[in-house]
Write a protein that binds this DNA or RNA. Structure first.
Lengths: 347, 347
DNA sequence: CACCCCCCCTTGATCGATCCAACTGCGTGA
DNA sequence: TCACGCAGTTGGATCGATCAAGGGGGGGTG
């Protein structure tokens, strides 16, 4: 990134400097200035130096609109911003957006946010696409039956999805995702290593493929270690009190010594039940959550949680987008990244 | 907002439709189509209808770059995105950004994110401004000594700050802020109403004007009710364990029955100490936090917390920005909004 | 010496919208 | 009858960059 100098005394001219201004001042043509900016190799070193000096003197920066018009690009990446639901612990968007902004910046892109309209999930995409306001999209909500990915594919709009195309085997778009099953495998194995044998699962309803994926990690690790899973699992809504209820039932019926949860929200429910029953998390009963939310981080003893590598996801997404936009062949259709486990007091 | 139809069968043409295409098809001139979009009043009703129909048929949407170039605007609002710090509960950015995106959309703007570079706090602003990539900025981090507001003012760049210009009495820029003192007044009065008389304060270090503002609300309410404040206050770093330590000291030395905290992070520290001492929050000791973070919402018994009206802040900011950008006189230089109290189990 | 080529740079056209000034047809009043 | 105003429409110029093609000078080659 070029770091412009901004002396306290300098002030932006009323009419910004244009390429023509620079050209005249430097005694060269417009095209030469353009080349100095975009294709420095084409200039003789001394000319390049002279033009660059003039650019610095005048504080010139190419007009985005003009460049966009001519090149038919915008250097913008569209992201439909969906906020964290109130009353849940699920706030990974914040971290992800930050990473995406950073990664995009390094690749020369900016991130454009647009609102989610539940009644018209495609509307925002359609408008931006038609008006050529963005070069590409990052699609984050690839839940089952979401029409966005299919629609964008059909429009031949460049985009990368954060999330696998669960419902559609023939989906031809590019995606980056986190291996949820690997995360719960880490969590379950961690508990087994600590000596637990009766490890319960509290996850989401069966219609959530993400939830089923995470559940699969628990199941496979339990079985691989010859441990029982029957009667040890519960599928509920992703809200705190559902997690609390599920924990209460499981504690009564199956006497688990540890819980693996599909989310930090559910884990907080478990902790609530433990609190009511005067059971100490970490000492009496171990709990592991998913997402490494701020909740997990500041909870008194700390909640052990599976942490998604959102920084890596963002970097991978931007890398893929850059390739797509420069019409390079994209080698792989999907990338699956491994999460880590943030171990804290609750286990 | 215009809702475009996007039938599943339709596909974006390789070369997007232009105004000229619409004009030809509708049998009118380009200017007439432009007027149909921007100044419908100038057209005869039947002509307008015909043009609109053609626009719909062709799925035309004005090219953003061309419009931006000609009108010297971008309909973009720049926001420097700073993520929540790890290990704290302070995640209001998420809610604020969402509100800002919604409010901006309704006013015809989009939000452009750019990364924070700590070494060069103005770099991002400077680049976007020079290249006329955004129309205005929303500045969020108006902490003491932050040069951004002053610099932007000096560049005559339109912007609205979320946060008062604490350090600079002569600052002439427009701002919107939340009345932190009013928030802690609400919190303190709430505790007094519940019968508490020994109410402690845990806040930030003295060099934070925001922290001092919040503290003032506690002080004034205590005094107004003839309650003591000496020896009941502590100023620490905004991290969990500092809050925990401060709570321990205060409990030992001053025997408070309630705590008001400058942040949910500190409140979590208090809750940690209560947990260690086997004291039940809400029953034995009351705790109130600040920010109504997700942490406050999902904590087992729930943490009572001051909630900033971020939706209103966003609306007010966008309203002010729109006025600034249309060169209307801005009536007030600053707007102060009142927070509310989200009451939960901890009090 | 003529020729070609390559390097470096310049010139005119273009992207697609809006701004500007002028032009048309129609009705009105002198 | 004709000037005039008004509403609706028109073609041309413009925003500021990049694309495509063209030109001049120096060096190498036949």
């Amino acid at each position: 990134m070029v770091r412009s100098d901004h002396r306290p005394g300098s002030q932006l001219p009323v009419t910004p400097t244009t390429l023509a201004d620079v050209a005249e001042r430097a005694g060269v043509s417009r095209q030469t200035v353009s080349n100095a900016v975009n294709n420095p190799d084409l200039l003789r070193p001394d000319t390049l130096e002279r033009v660059r000096q003039t650019i610095a003197e005048l504080g010139y920066s190419p007009n985005r609109a003009a460049r966009n018009l001519r090149t038919r690009t915008s250097s913008l990446i569209g992201l439909r911003f969906t906020p964290a639901q109130e009353g849940t612990a699920n706030a990974m968007m914040d971290r992800f957006v930050h990473s995406l902004v950073e990664a995009s910046d390094e690749a020369g892109y900016h991130v454009l946010l647009f609102p989610a309209d539940d009644e018209d999930p495609i509307g925002g995409y359609d408008n931006l696409l038609r008006s050529t306001a963005v070069d590409a999209f990052v699609v984050t909500d690839t839940y089952l039956g979401n029409p966005q990915a299919a629609w964008l594919s059909q429009q031949r709009a460049p985009f990368v999805a954060f999330g696998r195309p669960w419902d559609d085997d023939v989906a031809r778009h590019v995606w980056v995702d986190v291996d949820g099953a690997a995360g719960t495998r880490l969590a379950t194995q961690h508990l087994i290593d600590r000596g637990h044998t009766r490890i319960a699962w509290i996850g989401w309803r069966k219609d959530s493929p993400i939830g089923e994926d995470r559940r699969a990690g628990w199941v496979s690790t339990m079985h691989a270690n010859g441990l029982p899973t029957t009667g040890m699992a519960s599928r509920v809504e992703d809200v705190v009190h559902s997690g609390a209820e599920a924990a209460a039932v499981l504690l009564d019926e199956s006497e688990p010594t540890a819980f693996v949860c599909a989310s930090d929200t559910l884990a907080m429910g478990v902790l609530h039940t433990l609190w009511i029953r005067q059971l100490a998390p970490g000492r009496d009963i171990a709990v592991v959550g998913f997402d490494d939310s701020q909740v997990a981080q500041v909870f008194p003893v700390g909640l052990t949680s599976v942490r998604q590598p959102l920084e890596d996801v963002a970097v991978e997404i931007v890398r893929t987008l850059s390739a797509l936009l420069s019409h390079q062949p994209v080698e792989t259709r999907g990338v699956l990244l491994a999460p880590t486990l943030a171990i804290r007091g609750s286990s």
